[in-house]
Design a protein around this nucleic acid. Structure first.
Ligand code: MN
Ligand code: MN
Ligand code: ZN
Ligand code: ZN
Lengths: 140, 140
DNA sequence: AGAACTTTTGCAAATCATTTGCAAAAGTGT
DNA sequence: ACACTTTTGCAAATGATTTGCAAAAGTTCT
């Protein structure tokens, strides 16, 4: 309830309406501290709210991404399902186990590299994406 | 013709049959030194061979990826079309202009970072993906 | 070169993730 | 509670990629 109030404020600040669907999606993402797919979120929430639709989940996630409170990433090498995670804490990257899917957050090593590349290419660098893939201790 | 002979050998070495579709796809990828989508390749080749199908292009590209002579990458931030490029030269990454799509190859800065992360996490690192996004000199 | 055998292709339809149109329902300010 | 605007449910569409199957092409052996 404390949590919900927080989220309610967050949504109000963004200037979008406080709906139960939005609160539930954000609550779930906050409690599961890992990237989730729209289908993950939908599966989890539809048991409490059978009327919920996957399109509603997508619409809200896209909205959150546009409002910069959620980031959208392509996490898996083969599957092309998008993952979403709450933007909180520092900018970071991910290490993903190719076998079990476990995800470890990684600090960003690219500050200097970016400015070097910017000088070399005369591009204005706007953002970057980095993922490492491997086998976790249990899976190797 | 010299080129085709080379490619023919390449396919024979892989133990897959030499078909005109395969030769044409590889020729196109070699001449266009940039990542291409299946649709790019299809559009370009179907004028000479109207019977060619997109599914044939996909099947062959997937085959090449499995045989490790082509790499498949998700290049654009928003679009989820895959890009393919011939594996030749050094392992590298890409800098992509958000406006015009121009792609610049980047040398890999991650050797040391990978081993550091491997020690810290006890993961066995298998591979990584890095992309930078920005605006090229002309677009900024 | 021709026959026998195996792989690849053309073609159509399916699949998967995601988006969209529209009317009904819910949220917001007064 | 009212009027107004946004969001949702629902169904259907979309875009990229894959698949089943019969015909065509490539390969091997003679
Ligand atoms: Mn994360
Ligand atoms: Mn490249
Ligand atoms: Zn694992
Ligand atoms: Zn550009």
């Amino acid at each position: 309830m404390n949590q919900s109030l927080n989220l309610e404020k967050k949504l109000k600040k963004l200037g979008i309406r406080v709906t139960s669907q939005r609160i539930k999606i954000l609550e779930l993402m906050a409690e599961q501290q890992r990237p989730l797919t729209a289908a993950d979120i939908f599966a989890r929430l539809k048991t409490d709210n059978p009327k919920l639709r996957l399109s509603t989940v997508y619409r809200n996630l896209n909205n959150f991404v546009a409002k910069n409170i959620v980031s959208k990433i392509e996490l898996k090498l083969d599957k092309k399902e998008s993952y979403f995670e709450l933007l909180q804490g520092e900018h970071h990257h991910h290490l993903i186990c190719l076998n079990c899917g476990q995800v470890v957050p990684l600090s960003c090593p690219l500050e200097d590299y970016e400015s070097k590349i910017s000088k070399e290419t005369n591009y204005k660098i706007v953002e970057h994406r980095l993922k490492l893939y491997g086998l976790c201790p249990k899976c190797q």
